[in-house]
Design a protein around this nucleic acid. Structure first.
Lengths: 225, 225
DNA sequence: TATTGTTATGTACGCTGTAAGCTAAACTTA
DNA sequence: TAAGTTTAGCTTACAGCGTACATAACAATA
């Protein structure tokens, strides 16, 4: 089979882990994790699939690398903000990153073998709580509650088949028409009186829930652990 | 190739959608979604892989069916309890189900084509909030916040490589030994002073975060929408 | 220029989901 | 019971998957 390079004169641009992971992220961003196959990744890099294995142990290692790289995009909590502002900003940034890279919601590298970026990020978040006056136990509670919420919200958001208010309205109309309204009265009510209101966007729910949790954490911080 | 049945005398036990989905759930429970292949599923049902397609449109349809079946296991909010008790019970039941079927955390059928069980469940949850005095908008907020938290918590929990306090302690010791403590002081502190405390279980965090959210929802219900 | 180690290629294997056509079982009606 | 019709299960086949392994092409050093 002919080489993928057109002529011998243009020199082969060498691969490296960074380029491989970058291309893999781009591929997963545009077509989901299913679109990420070693052969397609090779194509995008103008290289045979097997060449990728010189820079990545296997597909799992590749995906872990992708996750760690994406974690770098999350804004670290600022030292100069108070804990609530800092955590709020980084939570919004976290969700933004998960919206940009929806595949990342289902990938958890932190559990088994977290990368350096993941560790650093976690350390800074916990540190923000501690410096904000949280006890060690309260910081653990806070960390768990906030991150669970963010992950879960991003997952729900990803699974929705619409994004813009127009799409949402169209989908809601269809749903409402199909739905046996008498069987699901509350679902019907919520769809008609809330979702179909002009300008409704599910993504707006994010801040409502986040602020609710932050309020609760402030009480926990002030009160007994 | 010989028939999978031993003799012609024992009549063929007929397949149906329910049996197919049941076997698929058992397979995914024990080995994760990766273990669920059509051939293995056929083996478990003493049938060729292709026979399954007489009861299921394709693998996606199968997985949606599995998700809807699993949703039935979640305890519906009781009509006799006050909203908070009812939602708290069903949230705990929801998480229990996700622990029993970890693969279900990453499967979202509700978004694109929810099954009947899923719809009924959602309707009852929203109805519980409405009857508890929540406005339509507040019920939407509450539903989103609670379910995001449950999904996210279950996902984090699933990705942890340990379950029992003993395993946790062992993992934490290893982590702490490997970790450059000076680079991650807060992570080290949390591990040493919290995770390594006897009897620590990450799963205990679930109720802390859940009650924090329910407290916040109670304020929202009482206050302005 | 010769040597040595690294990186890309090519081929191959055992998996996967599932389309197509066939056979045999089960139900329907006479 | 017999004949006709519908359905469920079997078999074969195919394209695409991750990746092991051997080889060829390159880059860096002596």
């Amino acid at each position: 089979m002919a080489s993928l390079r057109k002529t011998a004169s243009e020199p082969r641009v060498r691969l490296n882990r960074e380029r491989v992971i970058g291309a893999a992220i781009a591929l997963a961003d545009s077509g989901g994790l299913d679109a990420l196959t070693m052969r397609r990744l090779g194509d995008d890099l103008s290289v045979e699939a097997m060449s990728v294995y010189n820079h990545v142990a296997n597909k799992e290692d590749l995906i872990n690398g992708m996750a760690d790289t994406v974690f770098c995009e999350i804004e670290l909590p600022s030292h100069s903000d108070d804990w609530r502002t800092a955590i709020r900003k980084r939570s919004i940034s976290f969700r933004d990153v998960l919206v940009r890279h929806p595949w990342a919601t289902t990938v958890r590298d932190s559990g088994t073998n977290p990368g350096a970026a993941t560790l650093r990020h976690h350390d800074r978040v916990i540190g923000t709580f501690r410096n904000g006056g949280f006890s060690v136990a309260a910081a653990a509670h806070a960390f768990s509650a906030v991150d669970s919420y963010i992950y879960g919200f991003a997952m729900q958001e990803k699974s929705l088949p619409f994004t813009t208010p127009e799409e949402t309205a169209a989908m809601a109309e269809i749903l409402l028409a199909q739905l046996p309204t008498s069987d699901y009265p509350y679902l019907a009510e919520l769809t008609a009186d809330h979702v179909l209101k002009p300008g409704y966007r599910y993504s707006d729910e994010f801040l409502v829930g986040l602020d609710l949790i932050l309020d609760g954490l402030e009480s926990m911080r002030a009160g007994p652990s």
